[in-house]
Design a protein around this nucleic acid. Structure first.
Length: 516
RNA sequence: GCGGGAAUAGCUCAGUCGGUAGAGCAUCAGCUUCCCAAGCUGAGGGUCGGGGGUUCGAAUCCCCUUUCCCGCUCCA
């Protein structure tokens, strides 16, 4: 409970200090859509840049692209999204539980098959070694009745799925007297289709305009450009293509702040490898990506792998990197061994050869793919949640508290605050000069209003790692104090050294060099 | 989408039995000059989430609706 409160506080803090706002708020908001504010956009850009540096710049064999959100509609048939993102759903009116209609029918068919197997089992025990399983299955009246039933239902089921016949799907459920597995109730609503892909029209608004989708993932933009990049970049396997960009999913339920949004940003890299080598590379990227996360310094114990037991049809290995949010461990990044599924599908649907000629093997093949796919918005939330701290301060008298965002300096939205100690004696002028110097290199804020202590706290709240204070000593010896966000300690340094000093502290170079 | 709860100033909240909306903090201007937030003076800011109804009169009662939170469900 306390943890949930903490999550709420982080959301409130994000809004109050210009990180994340609900979309269209003055019109009552728009469900599961959020806007990034003045501080949020800086931090988001910094996270994206850190990922790009680590993937594209640090790896000579990885290049980036930026593909369009609109793509040829056939792509989503090839990828399986047109089928897989169309779930027929049905609700039980009594228990208020929701199920996938196709799942209910499949479970029912499985149960019938189970009955047949049991029947055979029983007979086998009874007749011992003289038992002829095939003959039994072909003659026993109970088995025959069930097999006949399975055939009939299965036939209707397949046809209904093919025709998208929702009424027939419901009729099958009624005819088979399928009950809610939990409550036993057979009081069902109509079957409804939820397509998780947004669609719109390309071209003029008329009958001939074609329906196109807003991409539900960025990965396909990479697959369809595989040949373009490989040839124009003279890439040799293994190599990777990286991309960041928006994707859209019309989630039935989207909740938990920016954890699941209808419009979100992905950072993906598809790594093309020799068939048979994919599981080695899968392990390689698991390790690399985990190191990237841990390089942020938010606490190694807050990360874990969660291997998938149930694999998607295209994958032969999959794992999630999870981060411990106040509401529990949640997926931040997925690493999948996608086999040659995607390229093969595009080869099939487009009729173009999606192959690579490997000189070392002297043969051509459809490459296998290992994917690293990370949600930028979730990453953003990771940094927020991992940085937010209500710190108890010891002070004479009452207990004091400060809210401080311990954001890694290279991700912080504002790097430096320039603060004249008081608003007189020419200190603001001196501060302005320093500000003008520094703002060419860093995102800086100048503040002269309110007491110095209050200004420090305001900077703590947005995670500014360094505050530079111009005091009465500055005009005398050209030095200022620099105050550290995390320790609240101060140091005095010459104005001349400021730029280099800050530069070294807010650059991601040190972290990146450890990843390289 | 279903069930439950919530919505009053930027934030936290008060508002009695239905009688024209209040506090603290924050914001802005001026004063004060101080190294870890809440000194002084003044000002701005709300059609009480939106729409409809009952009533002489609605923040308050009724209906609808939107958004958020919790649970269910879903999650390439």
């Amino acid at each position: 409970m306390a943890q949930e409160d903490r999550f709420k506080k982080i959301i409130a803090h994000a809004k109050e200090y210009g990180f994340v706002f609900p979309s269209s708020e003055i019109y009552d908001g728009l469900s599961a859509v959020y806007d990034y504010g003045q501080n949020g956009v800086e931090m988001k850009n910094n996270i994206r840049a850190y990922w790009w540096d680590a993937m594209v710049n640090l790896n000579e064999n990885i290049v980036g692209i930026d593909s369009a959100i609109f793509m040829h509609p056939e792509i989503w048939k090839a990828s399986g999204h047109v089928d897989a993102f169309n779930d027929p759903l049905i609700d039980n009116k009594d228990s208020k539980k929701r199920y996938r209609a196709d799942q209910l029918i499949e479970d029912y068919l499985d149960k019938l098959q189970g009955k047949i197997n049991k029947e055979a089992e029983k007979a086998s025990k009874k007749f011992g070694e003289s038992f002829d399983r095939e003959k039994f299955l072909g003659t026993n009246p109970r088995v025959l009745a069930n097999r006949d039933k399975i055939d009939r239902i299965h036939g209707r089921f397949v046809k209904a799925l093919k025709m998208d016949d929702l009424v027939e799907l419901r009729q099958i459920i009624i005819d088979c007297e399928i009950a809610d597995p939990e409550s036993g109730s057979r009081n069902w609503t109509d079957v409804r289709q939820f397509n998780l892909m947004f669609d719109t029209r390309l071209g003029s608004v008329n009958e001939s305009a074609s329906k196109i989708y807003l991409r539900p993932e960025t990965a396909q933009g990479i697959f369809v450009n595989f040949l373009n990049v490989q040839k124009s970049g003279r890439m040799k396997i293994p190599f990777g293509i990286a991309q960041t960009g928006k994707a859209f999913r019309n989630e039935i339920v989207a909740r938990q702040f920016i954890m699941r949004m209808r419009e979100f940003e992905q950072m993906e890299m598809q790594y093309f490898v020799r068939p048979g080598k994919e599981l080695e590379w899968f392990e390689f990227w698991k390790d690399k990506r985990m190191k990237w996360h841990q390089s942020l310094g938010l606490g190694k114990e807050k990360y874990r792998f969660h291997d998938h037991d149930k694999l998607a049809h295209y994958a032969n290995a999959a794992t999630d990197i999870e981060f411990e949010f106040p509401i529990g461990f949640k997926e931040v990044e997925g690493i999948h061994s996608r086999t040659d599924f995607d390229l093969s599908q595009h080869q099939k649907f487009s009729g173009k050869k999606m192959q690579y000629f490997d000189n070392d093997l002297n043969e051509s093949y459809v490459p296998y793919v290992v994917e690293t796919s990370i949600g930028l918005d979730r990453m953003f939330l990771t940094v927020l949640a991992g940085s937010y701290e209500e710190e108890k301060l010891e002070k004479e008298g009452a207990d004091e508290e400060r809210v401080v965002m311990r954001i890694p300096a290279f991700l912080a939205p504002v790097k430096v605050a320039v603060l004249p100690l008081v608003k007189k004696d020419g200190l603001p002028d001196t501060a302005r000069k320093i500000m003008d110097e520094l703002k060419l290199d860093f995102n800086c804020q100048y503040e002269e209003k309110d007491s110095i202590g209050r200004r420090y706290r305001r900077q703590d709240a947005i995670g500014t790692p360094y505050c530079i204070t111009i005091d009465h000593q500055t005009p005398k010896d050209e030095t200022v104090t620099i105050r550290y966000r995390d320790t609240m300690e101060q140091e005095r340094i010459p104005v001349k050294q400021l730029r280099d000093f800050v530069q070294e502290k807010v650059s991601p170079k040190k972290q990146l060099s450890m990843l390289g």
